[in-house]
C-alpha cells in the first residue's frame, strides 16, 4: 500500500526512547485536531497515485504525483466523463554489490479510474509529464458547457 506520510515521524536511523516519541506524536496530533484548520487531506485509503482535480470555465485539470515513471509506461484512457490512468513504476536495479539501509520507494503497477462531474472532449486531451507530476488538461465537452441566455424585454 502506498501512502504519503506526513511529519512528525522519526527521521534518524536510530530510535531512542520510542515511547516518548510516540507520546510526542500523539500530543501533536491532538493539537492538530483542536486547531481544526489542518484537515486530513492525503488520501486515507492509500491509493496510488494521489490525484488532484481542479477545473476552470473550460477545462478540467488532473494532476497525479508519479515520481520516477517513464512516460511511455503510462496509459491514459478517456470515455465521456470517465478517465483512467494506469501504468507501471519500476525501480531500476542497482549494480550487484550494494547493501540497502532503507527501501521505502514503492514499485509495481497501478490503475485508477476517475469519474468527472461532466463529459469531456476525449479527442483534445493533453497530457504532460514534468518533475514527476503528470498533468492532464481535459476540455469540457461543448454540450456540457453552460450557456448564457439573454433575457429579452
Amino acid at each position: 500500500m502506498i501512502v504519503r506520510r506526513a511529519w512528525p515521524a522519526r527521521p534518524t536511523f536510530d530510535a531512542p526512547w520510542p515511547d516518548f516519541d510516540q507520546l510526542r506524536r500523539d500530543l501533536l496530533r491532538t493539537f492538530d485536531v483542536f486547531a481544526g484548520d489542518r484537515e486530513q487531506r492525503t488520501s486515507p485509503s492509500g491509493v496510488f497515485p494521489p490525484i488532484n482535480v481542479t477545473h476552470d470555465a473550460d477545462r478540467f485539470y488532473v494532476r497525479a504525483e508519479l515520481p520516477g515513471v517513464v512516460a511511455s509506461e503510462l496509459s491514459i484512457r478517456a470515455l465521456q466523463n470517465r478517465l483512467s490512468i494506469s501504468g507501471k513504476r519500476e525501480i531500476p536495479k542497482e549494480h550487484e554489490r550494494v547493501s540497502y539501509h532503507r527501501k521505502e520507494r514503492p514499485e509495481g503497477t497501478f490503475n485508477r479510474t476517475l469519474t468527472l462531474p461532466m463529459p469531456i472532449d476525449a479527442d483534445r486531451i493533453d497530457a504532460r509529464y514534468a518533475d514527476g507530476i503528470l498533468t492532464l488538461t481535459l476540455p469540457k465537452a461543448e454540450e456540457a458547457k453552460p450557456r448564457q441566455i439573454a433575457v429579452k424585454t
Binding site: 504519503r4 506520510r5 506526513a6 511529519w7 532503507r102 521505502e104 514527476g132
Partner: peptide, 26 residues
C-alpha cells in the same frame, strides 16, 4: 504541511546513494 519523502538508501564500498521521491520539485 511537511511531508516525509520515501527514500531508498544503499551503500557500496565507495559511496552511499540516497534516492528520494519528491514529485513536483524543481
Amino acid at each position: 504541511p511537511v511531508y516525509m519523502p520515501a527514500v531508498d538508501i544503499f551503500e557500496t564500498d565507495g559511496a552511499i546513494t540516497v534516492l528520494a521521491d519528491m514529485p513536483g520539485v524543481k
